[in-house]
């Protein structure tokens, strides 16, 4: 029987991470994605070269200096909304982890919200991947890392949603 089923009880950090692997993973992915987004944003404004292998289909410079690297209609780099997206993921994961830590059930809206937020991120990522592959014929390693993290966050959220549906049966 899980400790969280006892009212008022909480979990130690280690046990929290072990028992809430999905939420902990989402939190770590949010941190990683936020970090990469910050790096890409700094590079965008500082006009310094990216640390990136260049050759063949890989060209970070081509991707990050293209018109598809900014929010359409603005000069805001797409990495800024990306940073905010990962911040929200981190916040959502923290809400779930906090509930588990205090031995309380997580809010009922949390899992569907995580899944929908992940879906929104994935839709944007698919648009950016389209721009890379179809329009630019180039990919950027750092961008691909962020896209992969977004996909993993979505899949993790989807998995939690599926387990919740099963638990309610």
């Amino acid at each position: 029987m899980r400790a969280t089923e006892r009212p008022g009880s909480g979990l130690g950090i280690r046990r929290l991470i072990a028992e809430e692997k999905a939420l902990a993973s989402m939190f770590v992915m949010a941190l990683a994605g936020f970090g990469i987004s910050v790096y890409l944003t700094v590079v965008h404004y500082a006009h310094v070269p990216l640390v990136c292998t260049t050759g063949g289909v890989v060209s970070c410079a081509a991707v990050t200096s293209s018109p598809y690297s900014v929010v359409p209609g603005t000069s805001v780099p797409i990495t800024i909304p990306g940073m905010l997206w990962f911040v929200i993921v981190g916040v959502l994961a923290t809400i779930g982890l906090r509930s588990a830590y205090h031995g309380k059930p997580e809010p009922g809206w949390l899992r569907p919200t995580c899944a929908l937020w992940g879906l929104a991120g994935l839709v944007v990522v698919l648009g950016l991947v389209y721009a890379e592959i179809v329009l630019l014929h180039r990919i950027c390693e750092w961008c691909t890392a962020v896209h992969a993290l977004t996909l993993l966050v979505f899949l993790t959220a989807l998995g939690r949603l599926g387990r919740e549906e099963a638990a309610q049966e």
Binding site: L126, I133, G159, G162
Partner: peptide, 26 residues
């Protein structure tokens, strides 16, 4: 259709199909 594995598998399949489509279109 409600199982986690189905949801995850379906999502991965959609992403793979999308990327393959992009490669073909490019």
């Amino acid at each position: 259709w409600q199982r986690s594995s189905t949801l995850i598998g379906g999502a991965v399949a959609i992403v793979i199909i999308a990327v393959v489509a992009f490669l073909l279109v490019s």
